[in-house]
Every structure is written in structure tokens, then in C-alpha cells.
């Protein structure tokens, strides 16, 4: 699917193709897998999605952001399956006439994707346990705290 893939995300390739004669600013955000979370050592993540809906929602978020922030281009690709430490889990690229729109739109898109799109992270820890994650790092003021966390066996 256009916005979801099992293979590694080559953000340098996406970035290289992100040229537009009206764009004076291109911003790339890469969400990468950390080796720790809340004091615990993380070995890797696995992502699952309700794929057709997630793909559709990401497309809708991009279309809305392009209009809202007057972007020339916007792209977002999210990984599915196993992602190793330092692997790219999600990339958002935005291109606009000026940097403010490109930065603001990029932040808007990643926040919406993280909070609204049906994609789920399964975190695996060095002690052999795993948990279905939640995005409660409270980066957005309007973020609703309706999360759950379940220990996997």
C-alpha cells in the first residue's frame, strides 16, 4: 500500500525526489526505534495495522494538511512488521514555499498519524517480555489520554 510497507523505508530516496520549483523548504521527520522506553531496554518493535483503513486515513491526513498549510507536497510512509533499533518506523516529508509551513505541517501530520491512524506498536524488551505500546508521551496539548497497555505473554 502507498503509505504502509513491510520493507525498510529509504527516506533518503523519498527526500531526493522531493523537489518542487515552488518549494523553498523541505522538512523530513523520521520516527526511529529507540533502544529504551521508560527505563527499559528495548530490543525491537513490531507494527500492526488495520491496513486499508490506515492507508486511507494517512492519505486523507496528507490531503487535508496540504490544503491547510498550503504545501506543495506531502508524503508519509509507515512501517509494518519488525523494525530493529535505529530503524525508521515512520517518515513524514513536507514541502512548502517557506519553512514555517513545512515545519508546522510536518508536526501536524505526524501527530495526527500517531494519534488517530489504526496502527499499533508491539514493543519487545531485553528481559524477554513484550507490551502493546501507547503513544502517551504527551507531545500535543490536545492529545486525548485514552490509552491502554497490555502485557503480552
Amino acid at each position: 500500500m502507498k503509505h504502509l510497507q513491510n520493507a525498510n523505508i529509504s527516506y533518503s530516496e523519498i527526500f531526493d525526489e522531493f523537489r518542487h520549483p515552488s518549494s523553498g523548504a523541505v522538512v523530513l521527520f523520521s520516527g526511529e526505534v529507540r533502544n529504551n522506553n521508560k527505563g527499559r531496554e528495548v530490543t525491537h518493535l513490531e507494527y500492526e495495522a488495520y491496513e486499508p483503513m490506515a492507508n486511507k486515513m494517512i492519505e486523507e491526513i496528507l490531503v487535508e494538511a496540504k490544503s491547510r498549510f498550503k504545501l506543495n507536497q506531502a508524503e508519509c510512509v509507515h512501517r509494518l512488521g519488525k523494525v530493529e533499533i535505529s530503524g525508521c518506523a515512520v517518515v513524514v516529508v513536507t514541502g512548502a514555499g517557506h519553512r514555517k509551513e513545512a515545519y508546522d505541517a510536518n508536526r501536524y501530520i505526524i501527530d495526527k498519524v500517531k494519534n488517530e491512524v489504526p496502527i499499533w506498536k508491539h514493543e519487545f524488551f531485553a528481559d524477554g517480555t513484550s507490551e502493546w505500546g501507547q503513544n502517551c508521551d504527551c507531545v500535543t496539548d490536545e492529545h486525548e489520554h485514552s490509552h491502554h497497555q497490555e502485557k503480552a505473554e
Binding site: 507494527y47 483503513m53 490506515a54 509507515h78 500517531k114 489504526p118 496502527i119 499499533w120 506498536k121 501507547q134
Partner: peptide
């Protein structure tokens, strides 16, 4: 129906 738990992508 599809039961959708809170998102945790990214």
C-alpha cells in the same frame, strides 16, 4: 465490525 484500540503508531 472492526474493533480499534487506541493508536500507537509512529
Amino acid at each position: 465490525l472492526f474493533l480499534i484500540p487506541p493508536s500507537s503508531g509512529g
